[in-house]
């Protein structure tokens, strides 16, 4: 009897130790993931004096190392106030970003869903070959298409306008791919049955296709938002007028004297992305997995 319970206890201890090790091993990288957000938050409510004091070693104005209180001595919302109420440029830039992201996602929806439907439902040699081209385009980094985009955008006379960012992104083939995966799951028999019942191709698309596409559309939306909220290369290349810049380029490279507003601005940039991230967590995950499925 005693032997049995001893074995049981030993097993339980081993199990506990294993779980403990697992948690520790997961917690270490998790801390790294969370720390930057925590630093940003604490910095944004730190009083100007404390902040510039803490930051002096970073900017090379003082000896020693950065001193940081995650819970500031004199918390204040002054930086947010200054940024939101006395910095009209910030508003301009914020709305630039909102406008760019919203227009891109809206246009992508209009363009990519019918395209995805075409590839998913009508499959013959030519359509399959074309789809391979779409996938290859989806995988090409911006640098490859930078010059060709520039040539076409300047011909269209939209350089240095928001359309220079919106147009190329609206025709991105990435959302086509994500929505396509959703459409492929529709059983072929269902479409055939609808055809036999006399439904037209467009009716089949709106009645059967669209309701089933929502998963892929949401996944594309979440991934797309995180991407376009964070656009750096395109505005850097295609926008000269600073008033047109998106948030991602707003932060000054010289932080001296502006640490507070830089932190507050960072947090404000982060909030919409975080919001979409938390709301769309499941779609995001599905989108990631879908993007890796092979065809």
């Amino acid at each position: 009897m005693r032997d049995v319970s001893f074995v049981k206890i030993r097993r339980r201890i081993r199990h506990f130790l294993r779980e403990l090790a697992r948690t520790v091993l997961l917690a270490v990288p998790a801390c790294f993931m969370l720390a930057p957000a925590a630093l940003l938050l604490s910095g944004s409510v730190m009083s100007g004096l404390e902040l510039s004091d803490a930051f002096a070693p970073i900017l090379g104005n003082a000896e020693g190392y950065i001193r940081w209180n995650l819970l500031p001595d004199y918390p204040t919302f002054a930086h947010y106030g200054k940024l939101l109420f006395y910095t009209p440029q910030f508003f301009t830039v914020f709305w630039n970003s909102v406008k760019i992201a919203a227009l891109i996602l809206g246009l992508q929806l209009l363009v990519s869903v019918p395209s995805a439907w075409a590839f998913a439902v009508y499959r013959f040699r030519f359509s399959r070959a074309l789809f391979v081209i779409y996938v290859v385009l989806m995988l090409m980094p911006f640098q490859v298409t930078m010059l060709s985009q520039y040539l076409v955008l300047s011909k269209l006379n939209v350089m240095d306008t928001h359309w220079a960012l919106i147009l190329p992104a609206a025709f991105s083939t990435f959302p086509v791919f994500l929505v396509y995966r959703g459409f492929r799951e529709i059983p072929k028999g269902l479409l055939e049955a609808a055809r036999i019942d006399g439904a037209g191709e467009f009716a089949i698309f709106t009645r059967i296709g669209l309701p089933l596409a929502s998963g892929g559309i949401l996944a594309a939306g979440v991934l797309g938002f995180l991407e376009y909220w964070n656009m750096i290369e395109q505005p850097l290349a295609f926008l000269r007028t600073r008033a047109l810049w998106p948030l991602s380029l707003y932060l000054p490279s010289d932080l001296e004297g502006q640490e507070g507003s830089a932190f507050a601005a960072s947090v404000i940039i982060l909030i919409p992305a975080l919001f979409v991230f938390l709301l769309g967590r499941d779609h995001l995950e599905r989108g990631i997995v879908t993007s890796a499925l092979k065809e």
Partner: peptide, 14 residues
Amino acid sequence: LLPMAMPAATVAIV
């Protein structure tokens, strides 16, 4: 996944 949602602009300062 959180870092994926953090725009490069906010990461740079950290």
